[in-house]
């Protein structure tokens, strides 16, 4: 017998505050906002990047370019065990693809994703970015760091550190796609 349980670990208002805090931190770290651009990893990273950008514009009074990055062609598990996630994405593929409406050369790019786990997605995203140009630096902002890194990758801006076990899942829900903001911990329970 097995079932699954899920519980809210970060409620909506706290998600909003965390995003605001990350926006402040990005501005604090990067004095020259003119060189800055945000690139969100599809799907939820892209929504987060838009929110961060609008907060940053509000605080700094200057527009920050935002792009979206689809990393599916850069994954390291194509046709390997574990590519089931790709499969489920492919049978109902996203209609949105990469969209970088600005030149990334010599820019400071802040990659944005919802959950940092093994680090493989970020590795793929960095590879993808380099096919579009040569940014002067790349920083990483994530809403949740759940640990279990398999690559030497660390975030520059973290919303929440949530220690998890391997078979748990962290689901970030955002109002743009999911109706409401929430961070949920899900676990398969073996009885």
């Amino acid at each position: 017998m097995s079932g699954s349980f899920s519980k809210t670990v970060v409620p909506a208002e706290q998600v909003g505050r965390t995003i605001v805090r990350i926006a402040h931190e990005i501005l604090e770290r990067n004095q020259d906002i003119g060189d800055l651009a945000l690139v969100g990893i599809l799907t939820r990273g892209a929504y987060l990047a838009r929110r961060l950008a609008s907060h940053m514009e509000e605080f700094a009074g200057q527009e920050v370019p935002v792009g979206e990055l689809d990393i599916s062609l850069y994954r390291d598990d194509v046709a390997a065990r574990g590519s089931l996630t790709i499969r489920s994405k492919l049978t109902q593929p996203e209609v949105r693809g990469t969209n970088l409406p600005f030149n990334i050369d010599e820019k400071t790019i802040v990659l944005v994703d919802d959950v940092l786990f093994t680090g493989r997605t970020i590795r793929a995203a960095i590879d993808a970015l380099f096919d579009y140009g040569r940014p002067s630096r790349i920083q990483l902002a994530v809403l949740v760091d759940r640990g279990h890194r398999e690559l030497p990758i660390r975030p520059d801006f973290v919303g929440k550190n949530l220690p998890t076990s391997q078979d748990q899942r962290i689901n970030v829900l955002l109002s743009e796609v999911d109706g409401a903001d929430e961070i949920v911990l899900e676990a398969v329970q073996h009885e």
Binding site: F5, A79, R81, S83, R87, H190
Partner: peptide
């Protein structure tokens, strides 16, 4: 290529699940 990899992973997953079921229920603490 990707779909074939996914099919293979699914088949292996089913086999693992069947083996796990044979081995008896495993108790894990979450």
């Amino acid at each position: 290529i990707v779909d074939a990899g996914a099919d293979q992973a699914a088949a292996e997953g089913e086999r693992d699940a069947a083996e796990a079921a044979e081995a008896g229920p495993e108790i894990k603490n979450i």
